[in-house]
Nucleic acid binder design. Structure first.
Lengths: 192, 192
DNA sequence: TTAAATACCTACCTACATATAGGTAGACAA
DNA sequence: TTGTCTACCTATATGTAGGTAGGTATTTAA
């Protein structure tokens, strides 16, 4: 990841920003090239096709997630701490103007998307769901959380709520997102 | 609404389908004209600009919602019955291939959208949230529901969860949506 | 019965998106 | 010094999207 040259890194960075703001069909190479003061063709040099760019970007997020999880495991974070990290991440991205998470950003265009992108997206989503299910399971066992449905069901619901909350909050404002995170916590029997 | 001519009705019908499948930037006049066997220019006859089409479509949804609410009130539906109606509507739309609700379908493109569309979308969202808050309030008072956060907060969360659930379900399948609806019910203290 | 309105068409335009071909300038290596 | 690689560039092909101008045929209403 960090072995990419600076231009390439910037391309990925802004591709992600624009993707998370407008979805797959909502951004173009021009958005990125203008931002960076380079030409469209230069982006094609690194990513011949748009699908290559977006697939790379999703894969990078998957690696980042794996790294974050490894760090949290190493520093022996509690379930609540791990989940709080996820919430903080969502809030931080909101503050950066990213109106939806990377895996969610392509779903509205999913049907017509190249297989390459679809596959990376499914992998990323499954990684998130698997991590979250683990956190909830640990939280249950340690008495940090309490809820009635299954671990799988509840982790799906949390991802969905956060996804929807980020969309709605991009219209209704930050407070809506904060409220939703609070409601999710209530649903976990988590009161500070 | 029903005083529209058949072609116009069909245009709105398919515009809605495509909008709910691919978002504002994800569908074109061509999608609709091909489907109906007419020309692009014919759609421009009814809706000079894309924003007119989408705004009209959102307004139509708002009228439909108002009508549905009026019917439910008239037939004295309980809070659970009313909420179940909402869930059934989401499931039905899922089965029709619509991967997200009308108000949600434009949010990813929201920033660059014409004011006209934005305004209609906000009106529709607020109508839904207001209705839902009413239903939750009544449900609380009648002992049909039980939850810890505020009525406003919880109704927002339900809309968000359903929005996210429909997105995720468009990848992971119908069972995911059914599970999420079940989880929402659990969160309302609603067990059949 | 005629005039106006409606519904739809052909033909076109502008803008832009993705993508390719082919070229240049500098780094680096043999 | 020659060759090859990287990192860009210009120019252009191709497709598509949104939108307009103006025509025609059919319906409607005076």
């Amino acid at each position: 990841m960090t072995d990419l040259n600076p231009t390439n890194q910037q391309i990925l960075r802004y591709a992600r920003l624009f993707l998370q703001c407008g979805g797959y069909n909502g951004f173009s190479y021009k958005n990125i090239s203008q931002q960076l003061g380079i030409k469209n063709a230069s982006i094609h040099h690194y990513y011949p096709k748009k699908e290559d760019l977006v697939a790379a970007l999703l894969e990078e997020r998957r690696n980042y997630l794996a790294m974050s999880i490894a760090q949290m495991v190493e520093s022996k974070k509690s379930a609540r701490e791990q989940l709080q990290y996820y919430f903080d991440y969502a809030l931080q991205e909101f503050d950066e103007g990213k109106c939806i998470c990377p895996p969610g950003s392509v779903i509205i265009d999913f049907q017509e998307l190249p297989e390459k992108v679809k596959n990376q997206d499914i992998l990323l989503l499954d990684d998130i769901l698997e991590w979250l299910a683990n956190v909830l399971q640990n939280g249950l066992e340690q008495g940090e959380f309490k809820f009635l449905d299954t671990v799988e069901s509840h982790s799906e619901m949390i991802v969905e709520t956060l996804m929807g909350a980020r969309l709605l909050s991009s219209i209704k404002g930050r407070k809506t997102l904060v409220r939703s995170i609070f409601s999710i916590k209530l649903g976990l029997g988590w009161r500070d």
